[in-house]
Design a protein around this nucleic acid. Sequence first.
DNA 1: GATGAGCGA
Length: 342
Amino acid sequence: PAPAPAPGGVTQPLPTTSLYVGDLEANVTDSQLYELFSQAGQVVSVRVCRDVTSRRSLGYAYVNYSSPMDAARAMEALNFAPLNNKPIRVMYSNRDPSSRRSGSANIFIKNLDKTIDNKTLHDTFSAFGAILSCKVAMDDIGQSKGFGFVQYEKEESAQSAMKSLNGMLINDKPVYVGPFLRKQERDNSFDKAKFNNVFVKNLSESTTKDDLVKVFSEYGTITSAVVMIGMDGKSRCFGFVNFESPDDAARAVEELNGKKINDKEWYVGRAQKKSEREMDLKRRFEQSMKDAADKYQGQNLYLKNLDDGITDDQLRELFSNFGKITSCKVISCFAIILLLFV
DNA sequence: GATGAGCGA
């Protein structure tokens, strides 16, 4: 039996004769495990852990040897061996849950070639230090999903694996190797993502670049500011302000968004990258196409690839000879208008 | 494109 967690955060040496066997298929039995693990040496005991009342398998087991050599041999030989067609995962038993909880030295790998299996992943990543646990994510028929996980014993192994392998070609595919993050942590880090460039819209037509500079420089040093101007030379009533410091940009957004200036309620937010903006526009466009198709099937025309400066009125005039127009709207200056004929 | 599961008698 493994020792209980040591008090006071003292690190216990790993017990070298007790193995934890995880990822068990639900029907795997003690005797199957006994038979398999006996190949590596004299097994002292085997137990599939089960729910106390339902007796259903919890999907993991312990296998104990008397000789550390046998246990080591079993780890090496039987890790990822299939039982009931599912690869088992073998590690030393460690009853101290702290490293599991902290998730330290845990890395994530994606864009893996589908031919890379558990063993290959293990062999590739064990060059950087001792691995506690490793696996390729598989679908229900045992095909690689193209990503996987490695948890090292030591943080420095994880760091050097990330540094050395991120972006490297494995079987001709450049792999991503980065820290493992739970979904929530990923979402949070996106929220806190730093930005310098601020987008401001709903400006009054008379608001100039100098006005923007005046207002925004309250919050920090500005490296550039612009009010976007249409073909007609008039303000398009939006602009961008770039800050030297992301903290200042965040503060400006925080304090200026929704503020009334010259009778206009400004929208102030993080400026989207071009790709983000295009995605957004595309989504909105597809939605408005759907809505319009539902409402006015057969009566509307769609135009795309319009010049930025085209207005509702210009289009209405252009199409007016062909019938009565009930509505004519440029949905986004970048792509689309929708015309409705009766 | 993708971010598991996980420690007993």
